[in-house]
Design a binder for these strands. Structure first.
Lengths: 197, 197
DNA sequence: TACGATGCGGACCCCAGAGTCCGTTTTCCG
DNA sequence: CGGAAAACGGACTCTGGGGTCCGCATCGTA
């Protein structure tokens, strides 16, 4: 655990850090968050220790990459927030991001992975908050069941993503189709929960 | 890899095997399929090697436990097959089994886990076949979208289960609610996939 | 009851991945 | 341009889980 201090870093250190992040981003996208640190270091053309000089822990590296990906996802959501009608915009975001996920296993992991690092938690929270806002608008417009929250969307959507990722599904059309099914589950049209408990 | 021969096994060997399976069933249910063999052995009150005498590989042990669980799931489905109306019966099965899953991480893993062992593959296939039959009936009765297959149900339902399991959700009501949402996604009511790809 | 086959379990090996150390190289400031 | 601080990277340790070995105990049959 090398401390991450605040004093100015040398040029080569910054360059190497960037290379590591780039390599990690590629590898995580291609093969998931399980890729080992040594392999990332090799891909970046640096030694393992160099990775640990920028990131105290593998989790920190993962977080750095995932935060980046979450940010672009959130940007897409926020763009949808200004659309005329929220519901179609929401569905479009889901479909589009599902296509992205078809080729990026890192984000999929990031949606649900159990990593408790402030930076990541914050990025996640901010993202869900944006999605919540979009859902709220869709609800107001009447296109959605009233009891659906961003959390519900997360469970259904992230879950489906995990299964598809696990099966190496890479056809964007398939991903879009499931995104549409998840959207269908949230539509306003009766079919309330049946019976007890 | 100790071979699993056919000659009659000693009484104590059978007893120990049963203990191991019982311990594994408990631990897998409580904490998922990641529980280590040493820990299972300890819980069963036997040595690690004893586990490997009955099961050539950890995967074989996992398979043995999961097959058992899948069988009870399948039995539930087949019972629903003789109901008057297939759709409500299907929803009921999903809700009920979701409650079961709330307390059993083993089955959840078994639904999607990548283990390629004949016995497990067979049990899974048989289970999905039963579910397919139930879906077919529901489709005939008109309660369901025509394009939904058992595979679709698997992606949505198993996915949602994985997320809930990962978050240690143990409130059966929550599980039932999501099962109902998945069911809603499959209902016949327009909302077809939007646009391209 | 005796004795061979069967089964037991603790000690052991192997591997892989996370994280650290230290002698050498690079940067950069005076 | 020279030297101290910063960074490098290969070699190292540590941990933990899967799977095996072998001397000892137990079973069950003649």
């Amino acid at each position: 655990m090398t401390a991450v201090e605040e004093r100015p870093r040398r040029a080569d250190a910054l360059r190497n850090r960037a290379r590591v992040v780039a390599a990690a981003t590629e590898l995580f996208a291609a093969r998931g968050l399980e890729v080992s640190v040594p392999e990332i270091a090799a891909r970046a053309g640096v030694g393992k220790a160099t990775v640990y000089r920028s990131f105290p822990t593998k989790e920190h590296l993962v977080a750095a990459v995932v935060v980046e990906r979450l940010a672009t996802f959130e940007a897409d959501i926020r763009a949808a927030l200004v659309a005329d009608e929220a519901w179609p915009a929401l569905v479009e975001v889901l479909c589009r991001q599902s296509e992205v996920l078809a080729a990026d296993r890192a984000l999929a992991g990031g949606l649900t992975q159990q990593i408790h690092l402030p930076a990541l938690e914050a990025a996640r929270a901010s993202m869900w908050e944006a999605l919540d806002a979009l859902l709220a608008r869709a609800r107001e417009e009447g296109g959605m069941r009233a009891d659906i929250t961003a959390g519900d969307l997360r469970v259904l959507w992230a879950g489906m993503c995990r299964v598809l990722v696990g099966e190496e599904e890479s056809d964007p059309a398939v991903w879009r189709r499931y995104a549409a099914l998840v959207a269908a589950a949230m539509r306003a049209d009766g079919t309330p929960a049946p019976s007890s408990a």
